[in-house]
């Protein structure tokens, strides 16, 4: 009997030890996610410190970017990042809303799955493909059709006309905004579709019962009910657009300046880093690029964290309903 019990006890002990190891391993892996965030922040701060110390607050407010005299400011890149992302949002949000409405309301049932699959496949296309498509296909089209038209029709209007002046280069902030819009479209669409689908049936039926048209149900019932989710989805798309690198690098033009026109070449934070990092000579140049990366990380972190908080709240609310 004893001969049986001892190995059994040993086995129990071994099991318990393995349990301890497995538990520690899984917790370590989970903590690694936090360490990753901290590591990214610390390494960027460390790498960007020389530039931040040299230029101090001026790093954020100056547009100069001169590797020869070693004077660097982030404003031009920051401007390009924000402007291209805003253009992308202006173009993508209405289209994404339209697609989400179509897929949840008007589309025949048998077509819903194939179309959503196609839109989601658009999200799987690597960003570099959007970049080379933007450079070789979209930019020439914009240069020969859309941009001359914009210059002719909007260029003479006071105030906003300034945004559409200058020669149509093809590449520039506007083109980058177009490419980004195509890229973020599927992300925003899929979040909107999810939140529209989460609208309680009874609410919609009540509105129909009061005699509302299909559109009034969407605009006055579904949309207000899904507001937090829609804003969350838009911010998630914005976060992607701000940080997107390859799609923008091809078409933005890579010029460190702020010109009033949207048609002019510019640069974004990610495009500057992608273009210049491996060729940067001198500690201050490299450090300035890393400081740009820090700026981008903090910016996108705030936007994405905000978006996630909104979506979390919605999830919690959805569970209660």
């Amino acid at each position: 009997m004893a001969a049986v019990t001892i190995p059994y006890k040993q086995q129990l002990r071994r099991e318990a030890r393995a349990e301890g190891v497995f538990r520690v391993l899984s917790k370590t892996a989970a903590l690694l996610v936090l360490a990753l965030l901290a590591g990214v922040l610390i390494s960027l701060l460390y790498g960007g410190w020389p530039a931040l110390k040299t230029f101090q607050f001026g790093f954020l407010t100056r547009t100069i970017w001169n590797p020869v005299t070693e004077q660097f400011g982030a404003l031009a890149a920051l401007y390009g990042t924000v402007i291209t992302s805003l253009i992308a949002m202006l173009l993508a949000v209405p289209v994404a809303f339209g697609i989400a409405v179509f897929l949840t309301e008007t589309c025949p049932m048998w077509l819903r799955n194939p179309i959503s699959t196609c839109i989601e496949l658009l999200a799987a296309v690597p960003s570099i493909v959007f970049g080379i498509w933007g450079l070789f296909v979209l930019a020439p089209v914009l240069q020969h059709t859309v941009q001359p038209w914009l210059i002719d029709t909007l260029g003479d209007i006071p105030l906003i006309g300034k945004l559409f002046r200058g020669p149509p280069y093809g590449i520039g902030l506007l083109t980058a905004g177009f490419v980004l819009a195509v890229m973020v479209l599927p992300f925003i669409t899929s979040v909107m579709r999810e939140v529209f689908l989460s609208t309680p049936r009874s609410l919609k039926e009540a509105a129909y019962g009061l005699g509302a048209t299909q559109w009034e149900v969407i605009w006055d019932v579904v949309l207000p009910n899904a507001r937090a989710g829609v804003v969350g989805g838009i911010m998630l798309g914005l976060g992607r657009a701000l940080g997107e690198t390859m799609a923008v690098t091809f078409v933005v033009g890579n010029a460190h300046r702020i010109s009033g026109s949207l048609l002019a070449p510019g640069t974004t934070i990610s495009a500057s880093i992608a273009n210049e990092f491996t060729e940067a000579v001198g500690k201050l140049y490299t450090s300035s690029l890393i400081a740009l990366g820090l700026l981008l990380f903090v910016l996108t972190f705030i936007i994405i964290a905000g978006a996630r908080l909104l979506l979390l709240r919605l999830e919690a609310r959805g569970a209660r309903i």
């Binding site: 989970a30 903590l31 996610v33 936090l34 990753l36 965030l37 590591g39 990214v40 390494s43 960027l44 460390y46 790498g47 998630l236 976060g239 992607r240 701000l242 940080g243 997107e244 690198t245 990610s270 880093i273 992608a274 990092f277 890393i290 990366g293 981008l296 990380f297 996108t300 972190f301 994405i304 964290a305 996630r308 979390l312």
Partner: peptide, 28 residues
Amino acid sequence: QLSTVIRFINDVLLSAPSIVIGLFVYTL
């Protein structure tokens, strides 16, 4: 509570710009 925090940070990292990861690995 820790899991909620990790889940949230993970969701943020999911959409973080990949070029920043490149800078991180470059310095590391």
